[in-house]
């Protein structure tokens, strides 16, 4: 009889453990939300030869040159910008109008890229990621230069795809 109760208590504890786990697994919350970055814009940093760590541009306005579509208008100064590459085209052209030390500038940034349509998950749906082939400015001043630091545009935070070194001097 004593052994029976000892067995009973031992097995009860084991059962209780599993019942708790079992009920918890039933009641646990499901994570039906999207964890992947879905906004896959190209990050462009601004610098000069003198100040390679970064410079700010004032009143930056970015327009899709092919469609004459305003993409961004920032009245504050900024040292980087995220530009959405064309999802269904392999060439994106951005006209960038801005001020630097009170002087207006207008530049056209051309990006050649390859796109990938991606089904991410049931929760996230689809997104477009890109791989940068070539970047150039078709009206660059002498001395402007561009560095492609990361050719994969996957929408991750702090991706730092392209860095433009302006020649304002």
């Amino acid at each position: 009889m004593k052994a029976f109760f000892r067995n009973y208590i031992k097995e009860s504890l084991a059962s209780a453990f599993f019942v708790v786990c079992f009920v918890c697994s039933f009641l646990s919350c499901s994570n039906d939300y999207c964890k992947e970055p879905m906004d896959t814009s190209m990050e462009v940093l601004f610098a000069t030869r003198r100040d390679t760590s970064g410079v700010s541009l004032q009143s930056l306005k970015v327009t899709d040159r092919k469609r004459n579509l305003l993409l961004l208008e920032d009245t504050l100064s900024c040292s980087s910008v995220r530009l959405p590459l064309a999802a269904f085209d392999t060439i994106s052209e951005f006209r960038m109008d801005f001020y630097r030390s009170g002087v207006p500038y207008s530049k056209v940034l051309v990006v050649k890229h390859k796109n990938t349509e991606e089904f991410v998950s049931a929760e996230c749906g689809c997104r477009i990621t890109s791989k940068i082939d070539t970047v150039y400015m078709n009206n660059a001043y002498h001395g402007d230069s561009i560095v492609v630091r990361n050719k994969f545009v996957l929408g991750r935070f702090d991706e730092r795809n392209v860095k433009i070194y302006w020649n304002f001097d």
């Binding site: 993409l71 064309a86 999802a87 269904f88 689809c126 997104r127």
Partner: peptide
């Protein structure tokens, strides 16, 4: 019938 979009350009 999922959708890929270019939200900025409306495509």
């Amino acid at each position: 019938d999922y959708v890929v979009v270019d939200a900025f350009r409306g495509d």
